[in-house]
């Protein structure tokens, strides 16, 4: 029953909409439902990137700790968002902290499980990459705009 639940969630998720059913099943087979409480860390910088999180409810902040200044939030992700891209490329290590700013419900996919399935079936690998590439590109575009500091006063 749990697996069917995950498949349905994936099918309804904009990122996975239109993905062939056998690939949905393969991805869902690596997933589980997880819950974090406000203030919990989903992961820390430097840890192995073992999970891919798909946020179902709540707000997660992505932070880097600056000595003397504390955690610096550079991005937040909310319901419908994907968290974490470091699982895609070696050395599969998180490069920031992720903290629950509210109670969080999410799907967590085992990164090793998904990578192994993608390696074994390049068609699945390509389909999964097609779901994640837009996340990477959107992040890049958003970061570019954020760096422009558009709201700064200009004479």
């Amino acid at each position: 029953m749990a697996i069917h639940g995950l498949e349905a969630l994936l099918r309804d998720h904009p990122r996975f909409r239109g993905m062939p059913e056998e690939f949905i099943r393969a991805v869902a087979g690596c997933g589980k439902n997880v819950v974090f409480h406000k203030g919990d860390y989903l992961f820390h910088e430097g840890e192995d990137a073992n999970d891919i999180f798909m946020i179902r409810e709540g707000l997660v902040s992505m932070e880097m700790d600056a000595p003397g200044a504390g955690p610096q939030t550079f991005l937040t992700e909310t319901a419908g968002g994907m968290l974490g891209l470091s699982w895609l490329i070696p050395p599969y290590t998180w490069t920031f902290d992720a903290r629950a700013r509210t109670d969080i419900r999410a799907l967590a996919f085992d990164a090793t499980c998904l990578r192994d399935k993608c390696d074994a079936d390049p068609a699945l690998g390509y389909a999964v990459m097609k779901q994640f590439m837009p996340v990477i590109v959107e992040r890049l575009h958003d970061t570019r705009v954020q760096m422009l500091d558009l709201y700064r006063a200009r004479s």
Partner: peptide, 18 residues
């Protein structure tokens, strides 16, 4: 949403288009 949060900010961080 704000481009840069601080320790007291509990809302969105990132571009408004996000």
């Amino acid at each position: 949403s704000v481009d840069r949060g601080d320790e007291h900010w509990h809302g969105h961080v990132g571009v408004v288009t996000g």
